[in-house]
């Protein structure tokens, strides 16, 4: 499934664990939350990522942050915005690793996803067929400055900071 952000398509190095597949000891693997304990207990050499549903209490994961390299948050549909708040929480709890939005998000949400702390979106093939990369790149660039102070996507300026600078320039 295509993984992308405003810089373009990202390389797919992570593999998602199949149902009932034993935890592999090598390679970078995304495991469902239910099997996270099992994966972390295994003597693995590869990196571990976890796929979270969007009903998770982010705090529960905090003690495991230093043993994880990737967190994905499920978006069952683009209208279900819980993932945005979960990303905010994860980042404010100190998660510094990779964070993906996983599911049926649309091009017009990419800037919002980036602003709340996601690094990339992983979307289904059928969606990507209809909304090619160009749509995502255009949509991500469409608003160049935002009113919010904390939540801004890379490359999006702060209107408040610009105002401040303009005031300073005027003296």
């Amino acid at each position: 499934m295509p993984l992308l952000n405003e810089k373009g398509l990202q390389e797919e190095i992570w593999r998602e664990l199949e149902d009932h597949e034993p935890i592999p000891l090598e390679g970078d693997v995304i495991v469902p939350q239910a099997r996270l304990e099992e994966a972390l207990a295994a003597p693995r050499t590869g990196r571990t990522g976890v796929a979270l549903p969007n009903t998770i209490e982010a705090e529960a994961l905090q003690p495991l942050f230093n043993r994880l390299s990737l967190i994905t948050v499920e978006f069952p549909g683009f209208g279900d915005g819980r993932g945005f708040s979960i990303a905010k929480r994860l980042r404010s709890l100190g998660w510094r690793g990779e964070l993906w939005a996983d599911g049926r998000v649309i091009a017009d949400q990419l800037a919002y996803l980036r602003a709340v702390g996601f690094d990339s979106a992983r979307i289904p093939e059928d969606l990507f067929a209809r909304q090619p990369l160009e749509d995502w790149l255009t949509a991500a660039r469409s608003i160049s400055a935002a009113y919010q102070m904390e939540e801004r996507a890379p490359g999006v300026a702060s209107i408040l900071e610009r105002r401040k600078a303009a005031r300073a320039a005027k003296g």
Binding site: F84, Y112, A115, A146, Y147, Q148, E151
Partner: peptide, 10 residues
Amino acid sequence: WSSLHPEFSF
């Protein structure tokens, strides 16, 4: 503040 708020638009 609420215009195109990334977290609170869905």
